[in-house]
Nucleic acid binder design. Structure first.
Length: 585
RNA sequence: GCGCCCAUAGCUCAACUGGAUAGAGCAUCGCCCUUCUAAGGCGAGGGUUGCAGGUUCGAGUCCUGCUGGGCGUGCCA
């Protein structure tokens, strides 16, 4: 419908040019919006106001000039000038229900569009360090990233979802050392856990599995392990120095066994994360290993490239990248004075690699605490002569959890945090996915556990699911009476629909495709959530206003056809958000 | 100190990218189940959009300066 009006307005503008009331060079952006107030018709355009200057007449006069040149269309019942110069379009009632046919013929494809034009987009999200289970903070990134990915796919992008696994570097050594100490404790060695180790209980589970599979193969006496190690923090030492020494000791004593311990820990945690996300309805096409980047020499190659571009210099024994040449606050280290490459070095290589895989758009979903990182990654892309604008970093703010009216304090280092798995078990996947995604990502959000958990009218997810279930049950009941829905008869009798609730529903259905397009181009799945609430409300209003299963076959089929179109759109929208559409509740 | 993000009804949040009288849910107060699921519907009250300027036909939205909060500002990841 919008496109029809757009065409008409376009023709009117051309006619204005022919009549020499408007310069040929003028090409106004034709903007059509949905009206908030029914008195303003169904759709409105501000075109006349936009053209005020170009035409040199007051906006309302321009509006009249446009109306005089509008082609006549059956779908448009009436056009009015209103307010400061708005053009208000009133749709013909018959035309309002055309959308129902579209929905029911396109089915799950209804709402798809081509704003993506088949461009290849890589959505990288979650990418939590594999050093422990996912917590609720990761949950928001997971829900958001997954919804953005399916939103983009719906909008005509070719989407690949990727999880970047930080399986290289010192944190992996700390993980191995933490696991080894727990393992030694399980073997009966009296050895204190390092202050800088990963404290969580899950390390015990990995150690237990290690005992199970390898017996005492990695056991060394506490005396041997601790011999001449510096003091740990509780004993007045430095925890960083201590754990580095402990790591070195582990490598020396375990030799090849060290890799085995590390791999056991890494595999166990990765598998846990993978299962956790799968149960959350979040899957990936690729789990991209940082270590594989290192091993295949891509990190060295990327540094080499920067060197050739003259963007690397040495200072204090380290290699620095001149990111400040590209707007970063200061230069950044890529190779430390001890020869180790930084995380940033891997990230440069990773992003370069993404583009080499011929993606047109790169989307990174990051926690907002990493925002300071954006300029240096873009700087690296620019230095490598790739387009920094191809990278779109979407920042997700933290969610604070509330229970019993109190904010839950969380700290990762002490292992005191609510895991994503706990959250799922507590409130269920549907409610969790919906709650995360119903807020704009850059908005700080409060996650009310009691509300998400409550199976009541306070919980918005049930409101939408209930609308879907209601439609299913109505259709079932009609079928039970021998009045199975006849869509053909329904579509042929749409003129039977005269109630306001019915017209409102049809207009809501027509808004779905544009909601998808808008939400996709802004990376805002929350718009889908709000739309679905509106659509569900329209259905509930209709349900209370009219009886669907009536004796009159043509009216009955028309009504059931309308609600089955609503059901289809509810399904399509919920699928994007990763929320189930139950048939009964 | 500097940089980025945020501030909208009592609470949690929207507002179609600058449009008409700023909207929902929850909470409060009225109504509606012998009729397809009341996890529902209809209605009422509730606002100087943090403050002060500016840009223009028009600002919650854009620009500047304040106030208040979050985050960042490592040869950590």
């Amino acid at each position: 419908m919008k496109s029809i009006i757009e065409q008409c307005l376009h023709q009117a503008v051309e006619q204005l040019k022919q009549d020499e009331l408007l310069a040929d060079s003028a090409s106004p952006r034709i903007h059509i919006e949905n009206t908030k107030d029914k008195a303003h018709g169904d759709l409105a355009s501000n075109l006349a106001m936009m053209l005020t200057k170009a035409v040199g007449q007051p906006p309302r006069d321009v509006a009249q000039m446009i109306i005089d040149r509008l082609p006549v269309r059956a779908e448009i019942a009436k056009v009015e000038i209103a307010g400061p110069g708005f053009l208000n379009f009133f749709m013909a009632d018959e035309a309002k229900f055309d959308i129902v046919t579209e929905v029911l013929t396109q089915k799950e494809a209804f709402g798809r569009c081509q704003v993506g034009q088949g461009r290849r987009v890589l959505v990288e999200f979650v990418s939590a360090n594999p050093t422990g289970p996912l917590h609720v903070g990761h949950g928001r990134g997971a829900a958001y990233g997954a919804s953005v990915a399916s939103l983009l796919a719906t909008a005509g992008f070719k989407v690949q979802k990727e999880y970047y696994v930080n399986d290289a570097g010192r944190q992996m050594d700390i993980l191995a050392a933490s696991t080894w100490v727990r393992y030694l404790q399980r073997c009966g060695e009296s050895i204190a856990f390092p202050a800088n180790g990963y404290q969580g209980d899950y390390i015990y589970d990995i150690a237990d599995a290690l005992v199970e599979s390898h017996g005492e193969a990695f056991r060394h006496s506490a005396e041997t392990v601790l011999a001449s190690l510096p003091a740990d923090e509780p004993d007045g030492g430095d925890k960083e120095t201590y754990i580095d020494a402990l790591i070195e000791r582990a490598k020396t004593l375990l030799e090849n066994g060290y890799e085995a311990v590390l791999k056991a820990a890494l595999d166990a945690i990765l598998q846990d994360i993978q299962e956790d996300l799968a149960e959350f309805g979040v899957t990936f096409d690729e789990w991209f290993s940082e270590r594989s980047l290192m091993d295949s020499g891509l990190v060295d190659a990327a540094i080499e490239k920067l060197q050739q571009a003259g963007k690397i210099y040495e200072q204090n024994g380290a290699l620095w990248f001149r990111s400040s040449d590209y707007g970063d606050e200061k230069d950044r280290v890529v190779v430390r004075d001890n020869g180790l490459k930084t995380y940033f070095a891997s990230d440069i290589a990773y992003h370069f690699n993404k583009l080499e895989r011929e993606f047109d758009v790169l989307i990174d979903v990051w926690g907002a605490d990493h925002h300071g990182y954006v300029p240096r990654v873009k700087a690296a892309m620019a230095a490598l002569e790739t387009d920094p604008d191809a990278l779109q970093v979407l920042l997700v703010q933290f969610a604070s959890l509330w229970r019993g009216g109190e904010k839950l304090a969380m700290s990762t280092r002490s292992g005191q945090f609510v895991t994503l798995r706990q959250l799922r078990h507590d409130v269920g996947t549907d409610a969790a996915r919906f709650f995360y995604v119903q807020r704009k990502s850059e908005q700080h959000m409060d996650f009310d556990l009691d509300l998400a958990k409550s199976q009541s009218n306070e919980n918005p997810i049930y409101y939408i699911q209930y609308a879907h279930a209601r439609i299913c049950q109505v259709l079932n009941q009609a079928a039970d009476k021998g009045w199975a829905l006849d869509i053909e008869a329904g579509l042929a009798n749409m003129d039977q629909l005269e109630a306001d609730a019915e017209k409102d529903l049809a207009i809501l259905l027509a808004k779905y495709p544009e909601t998808i397009a808008r939400a996709a181009s802004a990376y805002e799945p929350h718009q889908i959530a709000y739309y679905l609430k509106d659509l569900a409300q329209g259905l509930h209003t209709y349900y209370n206003a009219c009886q669907f299963v009536v004796d009159d076959a043509s009216l009955r089929n028309a009504r059931l056809t309308l609600v089955s179109a609503v059901r289809q759109v509810l399904q399509n929208g919920l699928a994007i958000l990763g929320v189930a559409a139950p048939e009964r509740m």
